[in-house]
Simulated scan of single mutants.
Amino acid sequence: MRYNRLGHSSVEITELSFGAAAIGNLFTEVAPEQAAAAVDAAWQEGVRHFDTAPHYGTGLSERRLGEALRTRPRDAYTVSTKAGRVLEPLTAAEAAVPGGLSEGFAVRHTHRRRWDFSGDGIRRSLEDSLERLGLDRVDVVYLHDPDDHAEAAFREGYPALERLRAEGVVGAIGAGMNQTAMLTRFVCDTDVDVVLCAGRFTLLDRSALDALLPEAAARGRSVVVGGVFNSGLLADPRPGATYDYATAPAPLVERALRIKAVAERHGVPLRAAALHHSLGHPAVAGVLVGTRSADEVRDAAALLRTPVPGALWDDLRAEGLLDGGALAEPDARPRSGA
Rank of each mutant, 00 (worst) to 15 (best):
R2C: 10
N4F: 08
H8P: 09
E12I: 02
T14L: 08
E15C: 14
L16Q: 04
L16C: 06
L16R: 05
G19C: 03
A22H: 13
L26Y: 14
V30D: 00
P32K: 12
E33G: 10
E33N: 09
E33R: 13
W43N: 06
E45T: 10
D51Y: 02
L60C: 05
S61Y: 01
G66L: 10
G66V: 07
D75I: 10
S80H: 12
S80D: 10
K82Q: 05
A83F: 01
G84D: 03
G84C: 07
P89C: 08
A96N: 05
V97R: 11
G100D: 12
A106Y: 07
H109N: 05
W115M: 06
F117N: 03
S118Y: 03
D120F: 08
L126I: 14
E127D: 15
E127H: 10
E131N: 05
R137K: 03
D147A: 14
E151I: 03
E156P: 10
E162H: 11
A166V: 04
E167K: 09
G168L: 07
V169F: 06
I173N: 00
G174H: 01
Q179A: 06
R185H: 11
R185Q: 13
E215A: 14
A218Y: 12
N230F: 05
A235D: 10
A241I: 08
L252R: 15
E254Q: 14
A256H: 01
R258L: 11
A261V: 07
G267A: 11
P269D: 05
L270Q: 01
L275N: 00
H277T: 11
H281K: 08
A285Q: 04
L288K: 02
V297Y: 00
D314S: 15
A326S: 14
E329K: 11
S336K: 07
